[in-house]
Design a protein around this nucleic acid. Structure first.
Length: 638
DNA sequence: AATAGAATGACTATTAGG
DNA sequence: CCTAATAGTCATTCTATT
């Protein structure tokens, strides 16, 4: 576009539309000298608020945005939050090419003090011919909105849309499946009922009963279920509710508030107190390490912890390796640890293994001495991982590591907005602080990288594969879409991290291992063991998603595996009979790996972050169930 | 039908700053 | 020591577009 003349011409380029009257732009661009009736609002906005306003205004004007847009947005959102302002300006500029013919009418109503959102919505619906009709509608709308409820009620539930997500991970018909199984069976009705009335979740209570036997005392069961639930038990001193679903939600909020207000203040004083709070100490024992390096990482041998004492009934074989997100809601890792034989979690951030962060907790009973990493060591900075990008990387973007690779990625429209924002500062030697903050925030949020002049982009699936330690094209082809690739990769292990932990098995099993892989995903554990040079004798892989099973199967064939790959789609199928059958054919399992679903634990989930009892994340209890079965059966298959 | 884009905050750990 | 601000997170669901 034309950089030839001054600021004015740039503004016009930004918004090219045939029907735009020159007059409209003329009036808005020359607001200071020539105040028409239409732009009076903009002028007032400037002159009223005094010098500070002028500064913010000028700031954006100097970036090259049209005065018309800037004043409009400032009027609506105030001038305090410049970040918000920039975002709005960019959003407006991106969407304005669609139908900007309404500038005049739009300005008219805006200058009357109505919200831009409402005005544009109404204009879109009724056109801009009849101003009186418009005003009526705007008033109705505004009144409706301010009175009480949203006006969105008329959306009909669409039966097809709820089935949309049912492609891979999500088609566990959760509600029915669980409520059927959760129905108390026979003998332990009383105990279970008592526990449920005390506020425990049925699933959890059932497992506790299964673990401790049916004639365990109530106290033991309560103790087993864990510290986190004691707080919940206090809550249920209130009249017990019948509906665990709805009341559980409000209870959860109440509880966290309770913890924040009471425990948060108590914590520091715990040291002083003696006999009162025994349980709190344990909760404190599971703090996240800083730096998050677990028992050690390859590059910092100085921080190595080479020995630990495992609880007696945790000691293998068989060995087990469990993984999930480190930043789960409070109490989740206490519960997981409690079930997995009180083994302490090892929290590791994969940013010490590759260029992307990945904060995860691992619970395993593997030895931790003489670990070794996969070679070659992967690049650990963005620049080493993507040397070609260095050329385009601005000096004011200080990132050296990417954030966690997730299942969704930034859109093309977002990268376009970012390009516009940076270009708006091109006449300066460096973008203004507001633009920098906006761009960096978005880049960090969406893991964007610089791929050209003023140009950012999300990572390609190939690049994500590389960062996570998978062979190139591991998830490519065979009927998997780009969206599915991102999703499967985002849910996967970081291979180098897992391999480092599993490396101790190499000298213990020179002839290979029998692997039970639950929630296999795209086969992170299998790939890790293979790259370590540990032969895979028999792999029983349980994975719900068909595309993921295909990926693993395809990898299995491409790498000329000699062993047997047995896959199934549902952990529920894996009961003691099936295990008995498998183990009698192939021998006992040496290693049980699993990263159970994180859906209901992950921070990104706004909708159903229900903790361990969520419909997907509660599958952790199946990992435990199967592991416990295999442990019990192991002596007979050795 | 399939896909991309966008809207949807809470929770927790960490740092900054008195 | 405290509080306040900041940063980051294996996501879900609806809508518009192709």
């Amino acid at each position: 576009m034309g950089d030839d003349s001054g600021l004015g011409s740039d503004n016009i380029d930004w918004n090219t539309d045939d029907e735009l009257e020159i007059e409209g732009f003329h009036s808005s661009c020359s607001t200071v000298s020539n105040a028409h009736t239409i732009t009076a609002g903009s002028v007032e906005a400037r002159s009223f608020a005094g010098p500070s306003n002028t500064k913010v205004f000028d700031n954006f004007i100097s970036m090259g945005f049209p005065a018309e847009v800037v004043s409009k947005v400032i009027q609506e959102y105030g001038e305090e939050n410049e970040d918000k302002l920039l975002e709005e300006i960019l959003t407006y500029s991106a969407s304005s090419s669609a139908g900007p013919s309404n500038t005049k009418v739009f300005d008219h109503f805006i200058s009357m003090g109505f919200r831009a959102e409402v005005v544009s919505k109404v204009i879109q619906e009724y056109g801009e011919e009849n101003k009186d009709k418009l005003l009526e509608e705007i008033l109705t709308y505004t009144a409706l909105e301010s009175s009480s409820q949203q006006q969105q009620q008329q959306v009909e539930p669409d039966p097809t849309s709820s089935e949309y997500a049912g492609s891979s991970w999500d088609d566990l018909s959760d509600d029915d499946a669980f409520s059927d199984d959760e129905m108390p069976k026979s003998g332990d009705d009383d105990t279970l009922l008592a526990l449920v009335k005390m506020g425990f979740k049925e699933q959890e209570a059932l497992v506790a009963i299964e673990r401790l036997g049916q004639d365990a005392s109530l106290d033991d069961l309560v103790d087993f279920i864990g510290v986190a639930q004691l707080v919940k038990a206090e809550d249920s001193l209130l009249p017990p509710e019948d509906k665990p679903q709805s009341s559980g939600h409000s209870k959860l909020k109440k509880r966290s508030l309770y913890e924040y207000e009471v425990l948060g203040k108590k914590r520091p004083k715990v040291i002083e107190k003696r006999g009162v709070c025994e349980e709190d100490d344990e909760a404190q024992a599971l703090n996240l390490p800083n730096p998050m390096v677990g028992f050690g990482i390859p590059t910092e041998p100085s921080s190595l912890v080479t020995h630990r004492r495992l609880p007696e009934n945790a000691i293998g074989p068989p060995y087990f390796y469990y993984e999930n997100v480190a930043l789960a809601p409070k109490g989740v890792w206490q519960t997981i640890s409690r079930f997995l034989y009180d083994v302490e979690p090892e929290y590791v951030d994969s940013k010490y293994f590759c260029a992307a962060a990945r904060k995860r907790g691992y619970i395993h009973n593997l030895p931790i001495s003489n670990r070794f990493p996969l070679l070659p060591l992967p690049p650990r900075t963005i620049h080493d991982a993507f040397p070609l990008l260095r050329r385009w990387w601005p000096s004011w973007d200080p990132r050296t590591n990417l954030n966690c690779l997730q299942t969704v990625h930034g859109s093309a429209r977002l990268t376009d907005r970012i390009r516009k924002a940076v270009e708006s500062c091109e006449h300066l030697e460096e973008p203004t602080d507001v633009v920098k903050k906006y761009v960096l925030d978005q880049c960090r949020k969406w893991n964007l990288v610089w791929v050209g002049k003023n140009k950012v982009a999300p990572l390609e699936p190939d690049e994500v594969e590389m960062l996570l330690g998978f062979p190139r094209n591991h998830t490519r082809g065979g009927g998997i879409s780009r969206t599915d690739r991102f999703k499967s990769l985002g849910n996967s292990f970081q291979v180098d991290t897992v391999a480092y932990h599993l490396s101790v098995l190499k000298e213990m099993y020179p002839d290979g291992v029998n692997l039970l892989s639950l929630f296999s995903g795209i086969g992170g554990a299998e790939v890790a063991l293979h790259r370590l040079g540990i032969p895979l004798k028999t792999v029983v892989s349980v994975e719900k998603s068909e595309v993921n099973r295909n990926i693993v199967r395809s990898w299995w064939e491409q790498t000329n595996q000699k062993g047997n790959l047995i896959d199934m789609d549902d952990v529920q199928q894996l009961d003691s009979d099936r295990l008995e059958q498998l183990m009698s054919i192939y021998g006992g399992f040496d290693l049980i790996v699993g990263g159970s679903p994180c859906n209901n634990l992950a921070g990104s989930n706004r909708v159903s972050r229900n903790g361990l009892e969520g419909s997907e994340s509660s599958l952790f209890y199946d990992y435990f169930r199967i592991l416990d079965l295999v442990k019990a059966m192991a002596p007979r298959f050795r």
